[in-house]
Amino acid sequence: MKNKRIIKDNFKFQSIISKQKVLKNPSFIIYFEKSEIGFLQYGISVGKKLGNAVFRNKIKRQVRMMMNEVIKTEGDKSYKIIVMARKAMTNKDFETNQNALKNVVSNLK
């Protein structure tokens, strides 16, 4: 079954990023856009500066798990978001990063 919450297309990433509505914290940058679909959609981006492919995939898996927890509480918000991981995320533990992501997503307006 296809997951309707995940954004994978490059042109969708670019359209959300081009709106330049941004929320930041030391671990994440969140680009967002209001939508009419009735639920939270997300895409994950990890830059090459963070490490090799194995490490970047590990970060993406962690962010995906964090987003699953965020969706349980904030999933009814009607937004499209792009989550970009920052270097500072790698120095913190999973719980700290998860709380930081929850705080940023809960501040969407």
Rank of each mutant, 00 (worst) to 15 (best):
K80G: 01
S78Y: 09
K21C: 03
R86K: 14
F28C: 03
N3K: 06
A53N: 10
Q20E: 04
N99C: 07
S106P: 11
R56I: 10
L50W: 08
F28N: 00
Q14F: 10
G47K: 11
Q41D: 07
M1H: 10
I16V: 01
S18W: 05
D9E: 15
K12T: 14
M67Y: 00
Q62L: 13
S27K: 08
D9T: 06
L40I: 03
T96I: 14
I82E: 00
K77V: 00
I17H: 00
I82S: 00
K87D: 12
L23T: 01
M1F: 10
S78D: 14
N57K: 09
K24S: 06
N99L: 14
Y42C: 03
Y42G: 08
I6E: 05
I6T: 15
G43D: 00
K34T: 06
E95V: 15
N57F: 10
V83M: 10
K12E: 08
K77Q: 04
I17A: 03
R64L: 07
K109D: 12
M89N: 11
K12W: 04
K102I: 06
M84Q: 12
K72H: 05
R5P: 00
A100W: 12
V83L: 05
I59S: 04
K80Y: 03
K24T: 13
K12S: 09
N68L: 14
M89H: 06
R61F: 03
S27L: 06
A85S: 13
I59T: 07
K60P: 02
G47I: 04
Y42E: 03
F32D: 01
K34P: 08
A53D: 13
Y79H: 04
S45L: 10
N68V: 14
F13G: 05
F11W: 14
L23W: 03
D76S: 15
K80I: 03
V70Q: 07
K102C: 08
D9V: 05
E95D: 15
N68P: 07
K8C: 06
Q14K: 14
F11R: 15
K21P: 04
K49N: 07
Q20W: 01
E69D: 12
A53R: 11
I81L: 06
L101E: 04
F39A: 06
M65G: 09
S15I: 02
T90V: 14
I82M: 00
F94I: 13
I44E: 01
P26G: 13
V63E: 02
I44K: 01
K2S: 12
F28L: 05
I29H: 04
K72L: 11
N57R: 11
E95T: 15
F28V: 09
N91V: 15
P26V: 15
A53W: 10
F39K: 05
L101W: 01
K92F: 12
K48N: 12
N25Q: 08
Q41I: 10
K8V: 02
N107V: 06
S18D: 10
N107R: 13
M66A: 05
K2M: 10
K87L: 14
I30M: 02
N103L: 05
G38Q: 12
Q41R: 12
Y31D: 03
G51M: 08
V63W: 09
E36H: 09
